[in-house]
Amino acid sequence: MAQQTATAYTAPTTPATPARASERAHGHPSYVKIWGILLALLAASIAGPFFGIMWLTLVTAFGIAVVKAVMVAAYFMHLNIEKPLVRYMLLAIAALVLVLWAGIYPDVQKSEGQNWRQAERVVRPAGDAHAKPAGEAGRH
């Protein structure tokens, strides 16, 4: 935080602010290496379903997606050296999506309500896009 105060009101719109350049100079992992790790993770997530284990697929699909997203955000978007304010801001916004999820979830899981019933499966025949929904609820 001390550094934040010191760098306030410096000329900011020049291509590289001195503070960020120096931060990057030492110890930033090579971008190509990050890219390699991302590709390895991609391979793992594609390979996941071949084992046919449900929980493993979920981990390789979504666990890895989160890891990849965090890596892109941290190293490519440089959130690792951005001011903490930005991280809090983005996390708070992302948390809102969870709030939305929690409030809607019970209602989306319902298949019927007052005066309506959700057709469970409606598959239109190929090539007839504007056909009417295939009748009543239920599988066919």
Partner: peptide, 16 residues
């Protein structure tokens, strides 16, 4: 546009 009270350049702040 040239001011940066937060220490983050204006354009980048807006991008966030």
């Amino acid at each position: 546009t040239t001011r940066a009270a937060t220490g983050i350049p204006t354009a980048r702040l807006a991008m966030w």
